[in-house]
Design a protein around this nucleic acid. Structure first.
Length: 684
DNA sequence: TCGTCCGGCGTTTTT
DNA sequence: CGCCGGACGA
């Protein structure tokens, strides 16, 4: 039996209220994950509820994984088994994998990322209007908005989102329809479809919806303030038969409106789910009070929020710091030096996070960390699978699995070059169009269309077919290596880049890809196959699965991530870099004229990640499009230094290294930087 | 068919 | 500054 005595009164009440709707308003650091994990454990261990009927949904893989680990450590692996702790998208995908044929797709569908989506939109746009009046990125983002609002292509022109006066909307109306048709023809879906189609399925087939609702009798949703209409509809379907819904959220941390998140979902919870019990968690267990005071000061400027009084009893005299830097390189240097100093005093690198508004900020820091030999782990950013070489290989896997996947097929048809170029492709696309068959089918069944290319096409098809068998009969990693060999991909890389370093890097990416398949196999054992591997890749679920040896490495590395992905996490020390105008709040938001409330919340999220030490930085100068531009500290904090909420230090002169200890650290880190540089040179 | 060169362009945030 | 896409030439 799990004891709930470690929870405070409110937390315990939330954990013990199992039946009916519950809203937990949980301020930053108030122990909501703790509450949720105890709630799950309490249900399984004390109430003997079947773990299979418990579903907890969060937004990011990171959060889902964290929840999983904490439930496991509380309940033990054996008892925790069967609970579903998923992200919205992994849940949707799980359902679609079973049911998507009812919507007219085959079960081996592909999932398209942004670049795949853009490729389709470009063609659809050409069909609509040969002139380049409309930008495909704008169209894509609007389609995304529509999908997240639950609006299909047919509904758009009748919806409140459609403006008859706006030529863009007419273009979108056309493109959205063509886009969706093509996706279906390619047997592919995009990210938003994962949820859109799941909801569609439930709308269309109430009996299927009922099946899942009966399966998941107890549902918990984390970060409820960030749910959008589509997700809300999904929740409605799933809770329909029982109404056992427990949501956790904090309106001050709503930061996903760009993805259609609708804050009214949390504000109207009682209305949507009558009889809801509401629990407020207001004690912050995370941060020392000076950090919390700064956070409260920042967020209180926002008008539309539920009043909260977050408090902490962790008193301390050490105030947050604000460092001003000369430029981004200087910023990286100072921050990394500080980290090296911390490390040399015996600190754990895993206690440190570097947070930023935009992924572009990560680059100088990353470089400096490498130079100083500080291990780090970066979340998000350029995704591994988005690298060109990796994408090529994945495209092969996709076509092997789903030959209808025209986007992937076209990507690899002439990679490595095999003499099937644009001209040939166009001929075949015509056939595809005329006979309404897939491109793959056309290639396979009519190799004589272009006699000069016949052999090339034949060989290509043979590779695909052979490897379809190969993947069934040998292990995943073996098959992938064999494929790389078969298509001579390494030779292709060498041919394409004359720069030896580039060749090396790209070869390395391929090796890493194969290694990731090996690790996947090791962890998933007999469940490891092409299907499961691709799914993992596409959900960007890169959270490494290796429980054993890599754990040590992870325990000793700095974490870098955007403010968005930091939500829900906590660190002893946080460097919040680039607290400056046009970055936080972001330029785009300022120029669009809308409020900066969400940016302020983002700032609040960043500050409240820190437990003991918070360092904010800004640069006096920053390179934008290659030229240096003067910068200013963010409006969110500009007045608060004078009021004593943090200490401001100008690091440009290095004049603020006070204690002897710090000076020593500085010297040491300078030396290790130098060594790093030398070693780097040696290598090249 | 394939490589290269040039001009325009845009930088949020995520699954 | 660096990417993408179009144009052009071998």
């Amino acid at each position: 039996m799990i004891s709930l005595s470690g929870l405070n009164d409110e937390q315990r009440e939330a954990a013990e209220t199992i039946e009916g709707p519950v809203l937990i308003l949980a301020g930053a650091g108030s122990g909501k994950t703790r509450t949720l994990t105890y709630r799950i454990s309490y249900m399984v261990d004390n109430l003997a509820i079947d773990p299979k009927s418990i579903l907890a949904v969060s937004f990011t893989n990171k959060a889902a994984k964290e929840m999983k680990e904490r439930v496991m450590s509380l309940l033990g692996k054996r008892k925790a088994k069967g609970t579903t702790l998923a992200t919205f998208h992994s849940l949707g995908l799980r359902i679609l994998k079973e049911e998507i044929d009812k919507l007219g797709y085959h079960k081996k569908f592909s999932i398209y990322d942004t670049s795949d989506q853009l490729a389709i939109i470009r063609e659809a746009l050409n069909l609509y209007n040969a002139e380049k009046t409309f930008k495909k990125e704008v169209i894509l983002s609007k389609i995304g908005v529509l999908k997240n609002a639950g609006i299909s292509a047919d509904d758009f022109s009748d919806s409140k989102f459609f403006d008859d006066e706006d030529p863009y909307d007419h273009a979108i109306n056309y493109v959205y329809e063509v886009y969706q048709e093509k996706l279906k023809f390619f047997n592919a879906i995009d990210f938003d479809d994962i949820l859109l189609l799941t909801v569609k399925l439930f709308d269309k087939f109430p009996d299927i919806a009922q099946k899942y609702s009966e399966k998941y009798k107890y549902i918990m949703i984390d970060e409820y303030q960030d749910t959008n209409t589509l997700q809300f509809n999904l929740i409605l379907h799933l809770t329909k038969t029982h109404n056992n819904l427990c949501v956790v959220g904090d309106d001050d941390q709503a930061i996903y409106s760009f993805r259609g998140a609708d804050i009214t979902n949390i504000l109207n919870f009682e209305k949507n789910f009558p009889g809801a019990k509401i629990v407020k968690l207001e004690q912050n267990y995370r941060s020392i009070s000076p950090i919390l005071e700064l956070a409260n000061e920042v967020i209180k400027e926002n008008k539309n929020r539920r009043e909260k009084t977050l408090w902490s009893d962790k008193k301390s005299d050490s105030k947050p710091l604000l460092w001003s830097m000369a430029d981004t390189d200087h910023e990286a240097q100072v921050v990394v030096e500080d980290i090296v100093g911390f490390q040399s005093r015996g600190g754990h690198l895993s206690d440190i996070a570097i947070l930023y508004r935009s992924n572009t900020q990560a680059q100088p820091i990353e470089e400096q960390l490498r130079l100083s030999r500080v291990p780090y782990e970066m979340l998000g950013g350029q995704k591994f699978y988005e690298k060109k070489e990796v994408k090529d290989l994945i495209a092969y896997l996709m076509v092997i699995r789903n030959p209808d996947d025209q986007i992937s097929l076209r990507r690899i048809l002439n990679i490595p070059n095999r003499g099937i170029g644009m001209r040939t492709l166009e001929k075949y696309l015509e056939v595809t169009e005329d006979e309404n068959i897939s491109l793959y089918q056309a290639l396979k069944e009519q190799p004589n269309l272009d006699p000069n290319r016949r052999d090339h096409i034949h060989n290509f098809i043979k590779i695909i077919e052979n490897f379809r068998h190969k993947f069934n009969n040998s292990t995943l990693a073996q098959s992938i290596s064999a494929l790389v060999e078969e298509i001579n991909y390494f030779a292709f890389i060498e041919k394409n880049y004359d720069n030896a370093k580039q060749v090396e890097r790209r070869r390395n990416d391929i090796t890493m890809f194969i290694e990731s398949a090996e690790r996947f196999e090791k962890y998933y054992k007999e469940r490891a196959n092409l299907e499961t591997f691709i799914e993992k890749l596409l959900l960007q679920d890169n959270q490494d699965n290796n429980e054993d040896e890599d754990d040590d490495i992870k325990k000793n590395s700095v974490t870098m991530m955007t403010l968005h992905s930091s939500k829900g996490l906590e660190f002893d020390t946080v460097y919040l870099i680039g607290i400056e105008e046009e970055l936080l709040p972001h330029k785009r938001v300022i120029s669009e004229g809308g409020g900066t409330d969400e940016e302020r919340r983002l700032c609040y999220v960043g500050i409240t990640r820190a437990q003991e030490k918070l360092v904010m930085t800004y640069c006096k100068q920053r390179k934008i499009y290659g030229t240096d531009v003067p910068r200013h500290k963010s409006r969110f904090i500009i007045e608060l230094g004078k009021k004593g909420f943090f200490l401001e230090q100008d690091r440009q002169s290095f004049g603020h290294l006070g204690s002897e200890e710090e000076v020593q650290d500085y010297k040491k880190s300078f030396f290790s930087n130098l060594m790093g540089l030398l070693n780097e040179d040696e290598k090249n």
